[in-house]
């Protein structure tokens, strides 16, 4: 994959109008807006991007404030989310971690959450949102592989928060996550990861 050409902002991707994330259209032609590369089919893959939430994304959030009608939740985005107390069966406290799904994003980027559940004690790891698809892998292959070797629960939020249960080998998770960040754009990542996890397992 290293032979693939790196594309910079302003480089032309196509002479046609293609609606893809992280691109823009000018004079009926498509240009890259961020650093990326093109795959075999000519599809543009961004290497860096700023996360924009979309419907059905899974988010991990940290409760930062308890107010009289609900909770402010830090979801690693420019604006925090608000969870109504009516949507929760049990009350939350500041510092609690929740997993939720995006129900709606309004025109100024405010997120409404649904399917909210409180997560037990664990660790939050921040991760570049642009590389989340690689951490999950095709049909969750990467995530299942990591879970199998670290012996715990792992939830990846599209917003770049990764929740790891207390029972997992957390140092190993950190190392595995670092490997994904470093080599997200290279081929053979799953094989690499398998070798790495076996070599580093306690």
């Amino acid at each position: 994959m290293s032979s693939r050409k790196i594309i910079l902002p302003g480089d032309r991707i196509s002479d046609k109008v293609l609606r893809m994330p992280n691109t823009y259209i000018e004079n009926e032609m498509t240009y890259a807006a961020v650093v990326g590369m093109s795959d075999e089919t000519g599809k543009f893959i961004s290497l860096e991007s700023c996360y924009k939430p979309v419907f059905e994304d899974v988010l991990i959030g940290i409760v930062t404030d308890v107010r009289h009608s609900g909770y402010s939740v830090d979801i690693n985005l420019p604006s925090s989310a608000f969870v109504s107390a009516r949507d929760m069966r049990t009350p939350l406290n500041a510092g609690d971690v929740i997993a939720a799904k995006v129900v709606d994003v309004d025109e100024v980027g405010e997120v409404s959450l649904g399917d909210i559940r409180k997560l037990p004690r664990g660790e939050i790891i921040t991760f570049p949102p642009s590389k989340v698809p690689r951490l999950i892998g095709r049909k969750s292959s990467m995530l299942l592989l990591i879970k199998e070797h670290v012996g715990g629960e792992l939830i990846v939020g599209n917003n770049g928060f990764v929740w790891v249960s207390e029972s997992a080998d957390i140092p190993l998770v950190y190392k595995a996550v670092n490997l994904v960040i470093e080599k997200a754009h290279l081929t053979g990542l799953t094989d690499n990861m398998q070798e790495f996890l076996i070599a580093n397992k306690k």
Partner: peptide, 11 residues
Amino acid sequence: LSNAGIPMKDM
């Protein structure tokens, strides 16, 4: 800015 992944029209 390219490294930050902030969308830009051009370099």
